[in-house]
Simulated assay, not measured.
Amino acid sequence: MSSGRRVTSADVAREAGVSRATVSYVLNDVPHQKIPEATRQRVWEAAARLGYAPSAAARSLRMGRSEIVLGLLPDWPIEQVLGRLIQQLTNAFAEHGLTFVVHSSARPARPLREIWKAMTPAAVLSLHEFADLEAEAMQAAGVEVVMAMNGSIHGEPRPPLVSEQPIGALQARHLAGPHRRLGYAYPDLAGLDVLAQPRLDGVRKVCAELGLPEPDVRTVPLDARGAAEAVKAWLAADPSVTGVCAFNDDVALAVLAGLSHLGLRAPHDLAVIGVDDISTAALAVPPLTTVVRDTDALARGVARRVVDTLNGREIPAEPLQDEFLIRVRESA
């Protein structure tokens, strides 16, 4: 049809030569309806010819809730790892018949309240924390589940769905054998504190358990000259830092660039370990040792928690159990 108006089930019924009830039974796959296979095929072909898309609002009324999970992204750069996680969350929710729709808070995005009011999602999954009033307004408007992957909902007793501490702890344990003073390469982006701080806490916890000094924390910009200043400070410390846990691979690559800028090299002058195993990690000079997270399993676990909550099941209070391994290369 070319009128520009939305195609309705009535249009499909006329095209197929059946009643609207029959169209509804076929397209919604209503059980216990004795509709001949030839009629079903005619309805599907008519719907495809007309480009019919069932109304989300009507579907929500039929199911008793929306099929949308609204994902809220903080103002973070959407790079390789985050992009992969978004795709895996999309796939994981689709396995449960849910559509994952992402909204970024990066300016000049529309205000969050306008987005969830327009969508009326069944659930909201935030990668960051958000304010009490926003969460309360969502729940009052009928959003059934409000969860935060990282950070927390202010005042909410539950911890976040995902814990970042084990990542820092794994980095520290990997370096702690030959290295008795560790540094931490903190990202030069305040919005990443919700991830960076618990990872740093994991490093601190392991250092305390092993009787090592507090890690020497330096903010590392993503440029060689700035990173070189951090490297010089680590090497000049007393006792000097000989191994560095970086927030992620991007920051770790900056540390390697800083070493190169000073005519130094990992791991001889400073061992470095990153997180994420991005595609350029293996191409670094030297190739970067890094922590690998099973983001596909993580996405499936998050989706399951949301779906279980939607279905009224009791879910554990503790964070999801993440799976990690260390991809050992030449930098540490």
Rank of each mutant, 00 (worst) to 15 (best):
V101K: 03
L133Q: 13
Y186S: 01
L73D: 13
C245G: 00
E144L: 12
T295R: 11
A236G: 11
Y52R: 10
P121T: 13
V302F: 06
T99H: 12
T8I: 03
R305H: 12
I115T: 10
V124A: 07
G97C: 03
H96V: 10
L310S: 07
V241E: 06
S279I: 15
A106Q: 15
A38R: 14
H154L: 11
V231T: 08
T120Y: 02
V251G: 02
E15I: 02
L89R: 07
P287M: 03
L200S: 06
G155Y: 10
R110N: 11
E136W: 14
T90M: 04
G83L: 06
L170V: 05
D29V: 07
A252L: 04
A46K: 07
N248E: 05
R14D: 15
L270C: 04
V145Q: 14
A297N: 15
H179K: 00
G177K: 14
L89T: 05
L133A: 09
R293S: 13
L72A: 07
M138G: 01
D296M: 10
R14Y: 15
V101N: 01
S152K: 12
R181S: 02
M138T: 01
Q87A: 12
A92P: 15
H261L: 01
G51Y: 06
W116H: 09
K232A: 10
V23M: 01
L288F: 01
L212V: 12
A38K: 14
L161R: 04
S19Q: 13
A10M: 10
G226Q: 05
F324S: 11
L288T: 02
S66M: 09
W116T: 00
G211R: 11
L27Y: 00
I86T: 11
A281R: 05
C207E: 07
S152R: 15
C245M: 10
G312S: 09
H179C: 08
E164P: 00
V302H: 06
V244A: 04
P111F: 04
S60C: 12
H179D: 04
D277M: 09
L189V: 02
E144W: 04
S163Y: 07
Q139W: 00
L72V: 15
R113F: 07
E164L: 05
R65L: 03
L283H: 10
V81C: 09
E164M: 01
H103C: 07
A257S: 05
A172S: 03
I86F: 11
V206C: 00
G17D: 10
A106P: 13
A141W: 07
A196D: 03
L72Q: 04
V102L: 01
V244F: 08
P316Y: 05
Q41Y: 06
